[in-house]
């Protein structure tokens, strides 16, 4: 069953929080993974892998550089579900 963007955001926030120790509430759509959340390329790959698992989608490695903000990731995952 497809997840709503709201559910994807909540799930992604949990994953980011688990990986970085940041509070889930701070993982807002407009936040940049690198500049605001201080997530490096290796942590980003961990987050991507856990998100792939959780939402049953594939996020190609080449696509990861385009996921600049949390909102970018939510949109990509939502689109990849369908």
């Amino acid at each position: 069953m497809a997840h709503s963007e709201q559910e994807i955001l909540a799930g992604l926030a949990e994953i980011v929080s688990e990986e970085t120790g940041l509070p889930a509430e701070s993982v807002l759509p407009e936040k940049s993974f690198t500049d605001d959340l201080d997530i490096d390329s290796l942590s980003m790959m961990t987050i991507v892998t856990l998100a792939e698992d959780r939402f049953s989608v594939t996020i190609p490695d080449g696509e990861v550089k385009n996921l600049v903000t949390v909102s970018d990731a939510v949109s990509f995952i939502a689109g990849a579900q369908s």
């Binding site: 290796l42 790959m45 961990t46 490695d61």
Partner: peptide, 12 residues
Amino acid sequence: QEGPTVFKWASF
């Protein structure tokens, strides 16, 4: 190497 890709493969 493609570091992030190798990291993902090796770690998971």
